Amino acid sequence: MQIATIPSEEAPSERQEAVLDAVLSLLVEQGHALTMTAVARRASCSKETLYKWYGDRDGLLAATVRWQASKVRAGNYDAQHLDSSALRESLQGFAVNWLAVISSRTSIALNRVAVGGAGSGRDALGAIVLANGRFAIGERLKPVLEAGRAAGLLAFEDAEEAFRTFFGLVGRDVQIRLLLGDAMALDEAEIEADARRATNQFLALYGAGKSPARAGY
């Protein structure tokens, strides 16, 4: 299956953001029942405009997921002059952004719909979320990890394995608990504390001086 994507550098216009907001609100309210007609009505635009911008429903969903995922960034850093402080700040910033996104009401609704439809064959949202969410986010952070290795600050053999370790340390069981209806509330202070803890743990595992062969254990 070919999954629709939109280039990460293409920031949506203000009008397009209103459309993507409409998609998210409708997913919260209607789940799989979301239609192009409903989005056009909620966003006060024509279906023709939606098809012109996004191609079809999957394209619209892909744009929505990519827009949500674009909020998760590792911050600015100079790969040529990366030091331990800048690396820590980048990793912690990524963790803060990701935790804030996955704990939002709209992301919980989006992921519930994606999980619910993944094994049903009803739509491609599960694959869209993987391609434009988790996998896209991974490709966004791995250059930071590789820059840290090049600067002698990190030791690992495989960037994907290192990313998955960091991803797990940040997320723990938070996302699955939220998806299953746990009423846990993550305020700004708690997110900051969790991000700091995960970053410290990751650097303890993968910091320079660790054996690359055992850095993930």
Rank of each mutant, 00 (worst) to 15 (best):
A40Y: 00
S84E: 15
A109Y: 09
I108R: 12
G126C: 06
W53V: 10
K52C: 07
S103K: 11
Y54N: 06
V39Q: 04
A79H: 05
R88S: 08
V65R: 05
A62T: 02
M36H: 01
V113Y: 11
L125V: 00
M36N: 01
V96K: 13
A69G: 07
V72T: 09
A118V: 07
L34C: 06
A114L: 11
A69N: 07
G126F: 12
T64Q: 04
T106F: 07
G116Q: 07
L91E: 02
N97D: 15
G75Y: 04
L91P: 08
T37W: 07
V129L: 11
C45S: 06
A95M: 04
T64S: 10
V115A: 13
S120Q: 14
A79D: 02
R57S: 10
T49M: 13
R112F: 01
R66M: 06
Y51S: 10
A124Y: 08
V72C: 14
V65F: 11
W98L: 15
Y54K: 02
S107P: 00
A38Q: 07
D83M: 11
N111S: 05
S120C: 03
M36I: 15
S107W: 14
A118C: 10
T35W: 03
T106C: 03
N76R: 15
I102W: 10
Q92F: 01
G116M: 11
Q68T: 12
V101E: 14
V72A: 04
A124M: 09
G59W: 01
L61P: 02
G117E: 15
D123F: 10
W53E: 12
S70M: 04
A43E: 01
H81R: 13
